[in-house]
């Protein structure tokens, strides 16, 4: 597999993969064409005259979140949780946060300032995700980037000064998961208690299932039900999960 044979194999691999991708791209509809999925969205999820089916959120992706795509997000969260538990089981016991120098003073000062900006933008992207692009996973990735910047530019030992260590990160992650789980089973408990129909992961009231989270925040501002709390829980889960993974992967495997 050395010499020209390896190169030929690489060329063949790249050529075949790119031809497959070009072939897949040929089947796409034209830009600007309203696809059937878009029509379904316009008729059902954000239609003020058809409030039996809507989810009270102008953003398409998060509007589909609970009433239409809830189980998808639930199982994504579960897969992510299992992955982090596996990494933590392999690397636990070597976790020591020692404080060392870090990079130069210019980079350290810049990283501290940018940390605040990145964390603020993570919260903004998550909370305003019912109107502007964003969501829980996006906000969580950005939050993880803020902490990774601190770890790289300063050091791992700087995290306890910011009231974050491995145990607290695990606790915050579990609080986020518990928020999601609790909001998921509230409609079921309501249904068992009152005798009316309600589904797990139900967000807005339907004609035959009157339970629903509040539609409006104040008088006119759409709240999207409880999409904002579930996005906040997802954000804390994903951000703390990536931070824990990065911390555990940067641990030394043996003392030397």
């Amino acid at each position: 597999m050395s010499g020209w044979r390896g190169s030929l194999l690489g060329v063949l691999f790249v050529a075949s993969m790119s031809s497959i991708l070009v072939y897949a791209f040929l089947g796409y509809p034209e830009l600007g064409f309203v696809r059937p999925l878009g029509e379904f969205y316009l008729f059902n999820t954000y239609n003020f005259e058809n409030q039996d089916w809507w989810s009270a959120s102008p953003n398409a992706v998060t509007g589909l979140l609970w009433d239409y795509r809830g189980y998808d997000t639930l199982y994504e969260t579960m897969v992510f949780y299992v992955g982090i538990v596996a990494v933590a089981m392999f690397f636990e016991g070597h976790a020591k946060l020692t404080k060392t120098g870090g990079m130069t003073v210019i980079v350290r000062a810049t990283a501290r300032m940018v940390f605040v900006f990145i964390l603020t933008s993570a919260f903004a992207i998550t909370i305003f995700s019912i109107k502007t692009p964003g969501g829980g996973f996006q906000g969580g990735s950005i939050m993880a980037i803020a902490y990774i910047a601190i770890i790289v530019a300063l050091s791992k030992g700087f995290l306890p000064e910011m009231n974050i260590d491995l145990e607290k990160a695990h606790i915050a992650k579990i609080i986020g998961l518990a928020l999601i789980a609790g909001l998921t089973i509230v409609p079921v408990v309501y249904s068992l208690a009152s005798g009316s129909v309600a589904y797990a992961l139900q967000n807005q009231p339907k004609a035959w299932a009157p339970f629903g989270y509040p539609t409006y925040l104040g008088l006119t501002s759409l709240s999207g039900g409880l999409i904002i709390p579930i996005q906040l829980g997802e954000m804390v889960h994903v951000g703390m999960g990536f931070t824990i993974m990065f911390l555990l992967l940067t641990m030394k495997e043996r003392e030397d």
Binding site: M103, F117, I118, I145
Partner: peptide
Amino acid sequence: LWFFIGAL
């Protein structure tokens, strides 16, 4: 805000 981080 975070394009610079790869250079870091």
